[in-house]
Design a binder for these strands. Structure first.
Ligand SMILES: [Mn+2]
Ligand SMILES: [Mn+2]
Ligand SMILES: [Zn+2]
Ligand SMILES: [Zn+2]
Lengths: 142, 142
DNA sequence: CCTCTTAATTTGAATCTGTCAAGATAAGAA
DNA sequence: TTCTTATCTTGACAGATTCAAATTAAGAGG
């Protein structure tokens, strides 16, 4: 996704195209699964004048409009990414905190059907795998 | 689970058996998926002298020892429950916030195998279904 | 039972993450 | 270029949780 695509998408959503919004999208494009704080740091590389509050505003607005995805691993601030609508999952290393994308075999939501959903109409299945990554296994063994 | 079981389990783990710990376990037994704040309220029904900090300590210690399970739905404080080791999942109503247990068809972790785990040794698959519960569908329709 | 060790708890401050609200600024329609 | 108002900035504030030091009490050992 480049600036033109993002700009068009924002206009379609009735959102104004601003430097801050594009910078946040850029930051998350090159650093997926970033916290608000890390997005601020990345944005400040090119636009030091953007306020922290503004980054929060952008993250909330774009998430609300479906241009960003937010998820909250245990013991972590909320993380954001630009990959949306592909229903992919995540794998978290409980040792070093690394997070990897895991492709969804089904590819659309909800990819899993619960046995008994208590009458709920399921729209989404968020899956967070937890385990130990290869690097940590090697380090632990040593 | 009654007090005797919990006490034995704590001793086996090398933990001292205290009124506060038993009260927290009782609270979560009768009010599963409670936040720390709600646990405090429940505990204070019978033990008003227990401090908030102590409840946090107990929740952390027992979660660390595997006697409690913690999970973090989006836009929510951490929630706790006494059901552990059965790898059950959760369904969250995005309208009213209700949370229901969803039995795991497989029954043990990890119940799902990711297509490509990037070398990670997966130990757990946390699944959070999101949708609209029956009550909210009726209300929304009206 | 006592005594003693130290795990657990209390208290109060502090941190982290994020929100609220009011005024200033700038996107983009006309 | 003008004008409307969405967006941004600033500063205060809130919620959830943690930190640290002093106090209390669980339970092992005598
Ligand atoms: Mn991802
Ligand atoms: Mn549950
Ligand atoms: Zn790792
Ligand atoms: Zn509902």
């Amino acid at each position: 996704m480049d600036h033109m695509d993002y700009s068009a998408q924002m206009r379609d959503l009735g959102l104004r195209v601003t430097r801050g919004r594009l910078a946040v999208l850029d930051a998350l494009e090159s650093h997926p699964h970033s916290s608000a704080e890390r997005v601020v740091i990345a944005v400040h590389q090119t636009l030091p004048e953007v306020s922290i509050q503004s980054v929060y505003n952008v993250l909330n607005d774009l998430t609300e409009q479906g241009m960003l995805r937010r998820f909250t691993p245990p013991y972590s601030a909320a993380l954001y990414e630009t990959r949306v609508n592909d229903n992919h999952h995540h794998a978290l290393c409980t040792s070093c905190g690394r997070i990897e994308d895991v492709e969804c075999a089904v590819g659309h939501a909800p990819c899993l059907t619960p046995s008994n959903s208590h009458g709920m109409e399921i729209q989404l299945a968020d899956v967070l795998y937890q385990g130990i990554c290869e690097d940590c296994r090697k380090t632990d063994a040593a």
